[in-house]
Design a protein around this nucleic acid. Sequence first.
DNA 1: AGTTTTTTTTGACAAATGTCAAAAATTTTC
DNA 2: GAAAATTTTTGACATTTGTCAAAAAAAACT
Lengths: 188, 188
Amino acid sequence: MDMNLITFLKSITTILPETEAEIHKVFFAEQLPKGHKLHEEGKVCNQLFYIESGLSRTFYFNEEGKDITYRFNGENTFTSLIESYYDHKPSFYTIELLEDAVVHAAPFPEFEKLLEKHPELMKVYNHVLRNFVLQSNERIVALQFHNAQERYQMFVDKNPHLLQRASLGHIASYLGITQETLSRIRSK
Amino acid sequence: MDMNLITFLKSITTILPETEAEIHKVFFAEQLPKGHKLHEEGKVCNQLFYIESGLSRTFYFNEEGKDITYRFNGENTFTSLIESYYDHKPSFYTIELLEDAVVHAAPFPEFEKLLEKHPELMKVYNHVLRNFVLQSNERIVALQFHNAQERYQMFVDKNPHLLQRASLGHIASYLGITQETLSRIRSK
DNA sequence: AGTTTTTTTTGACAAATGTCAAAAATTTTC
DNA sequence: GAAAATTTTTGACATTTGTCAAAAAAAACT
């Protein structure tokens, strides 16, 4: 079930009515088509995105020019390239939409001002960062000591809904294997 | 250069004298011997550790009973198993000291109370979480699409000091390869 | 519906990494 | 400083995964 931004925030912390109004001033909601790029490679990312509905994919091109999925973000999650924002460095990642989506975008500086003004929102930000950490943890454990088949199984268990929504090639590179290998794993 | 906790915090944000006193109440500093376990597998982790000097290693035992390094933490870094604390779940990780160390430990609940009372410290906590995220990012990129040799090279470039301080087996499992493979890579 | 484009599957073979076992080197302990 | 314990290296071979090329299937377009 897709939740709009405020509903989602309220599931994490208490939001006062006046804060709510300010959140609306900082986040800009838009309906965007499949294929749209939320962020383009080579630019500094200074926005924080909330995906209300739809699916995004973050990827980069490796040395051989192959497109490698870094992560997927479905509905009710935040995405961004915070390392780019914090270090003022262009990111080599692109964030694209794999489906039509409703996305709320906030410029980071304004989001930070909002945090300072409404410390209760800090809880939200910690939630976001924490989820980034937890997601990464799982990812590392998978990549570090599980073979291709196990990684695929873990992916299926964790993200059953993504199977139909993302292509084999996108999933394969996410798992750190080739498309052919994934295809062979699947044919069992 | 090892920094004590307050010095380190001051490198991130401004610390008022009265806050400083409270930090000292929450964090307990101790000189601990090599081999000491900061956290034992199977328990819920509810402490946040700051390593002033020395080196810790976080590891777990995989299905075959092999000991797999999850991460290393050197001086001037924080370590913990936040997913365990947040989810009230026993962690399968152990944190052990690879060298004699000076460690400052804070119970999470008290640390959180401190954060609420002194919002300027939130900046510190964000810094900690952010570093967890950045570190994880690099790790994933390495594991996802670089071969054993490249991963070793990246590790050497990023952590030259760790080479002498951690054993080959510990580093190998951190890189997601066997000790034999790492030994062969190194003999070139 | 038919054509074009994209995605997925399959095959043959190559390359990377793992496994098991033992020897060599290093570190720790007494 | 010798003995014991641990860590690292080496060898032979097995297994996993990648590469390249082409066919098959599915999806998108007109």
